[in-house]
């Protein structure tokens, strides 16, 4: 019955939360080499958790990271950040849009159009 006795040993879960969309979720690892990823290396310092949608408990999920320019903590969602050799938050992307390749610019323009359309309807 005393299964739930207070355990002080366990560190409280740290929470990742996106400074743009406020998405928040506890993370289990921050860095480039999450546990049990073997040959896989992350190219940026990421906030990582176990992938809750995979039946395999060893799979990881990147929640987000810090913008390489302004340092803002952003989630990996395409509304909040882009990874292009480095992580850029959407604010920095928009500020320096001209330095991004044409493909990315086109993609963002298209998305903007779409979102404004759904906002109207």
């Amino acid at each position: 019955m005393s299964n739930m006795e207070h355990t002080a040993s366990e560190a409280p879960l740290k929470t990742f939360s996106c400074q743009l969309c406020e998405l928040s979720s506890p993370f289990t690892y921050h860095g480039q080499k999450p546990p049990n990823t073997r040959a896989i290396v992350l190219l940026e310092e990421c906030f990582v958790t176990r992938d809750p949608f995979s039946p395999d408990r060893e799979k990881f999920l990147v929640l987000g990271s810090n913008c390489s320019l302004c340092g803002m903590r952003v989630c990996a969602g395409s509304d909040c950040s882009i990874f292009y050799t480095k992580r850029f938050c959407m604010r920095c992307v928009n500020k320096h849009l001209d330095q991004f390749p044409h493909q990315i610019q086109a993609e963002l323009a298209k998305k903007k159009q779409q979102s404004s359309r759904t906002a109207v309807s």
């Binding site: 040959a39 896989i40 290396v41 992350l42 190219l43 940026e44 990421c46 990147v62 990271s65 320019l69 882009i82 990874f83 292009y84 050799t85 480095k86 992580r87 850029f88 320096h96 330095q99 991004f100 390749p101 044409h102 493909q103 990315i104």
Partner: peptide, 18 residues
């Protein structure tokens, strides 16, 4: 920003396998 000159979808992936 020091972005590569040539676009490659590969640059959009933040994972590498080695």
């Amino acid at each position: 920003l020091g972005l590569p000159k040539e676009y490659d979808a590969r640059y959009r992936i933040n994972v590498s396998v080695c």
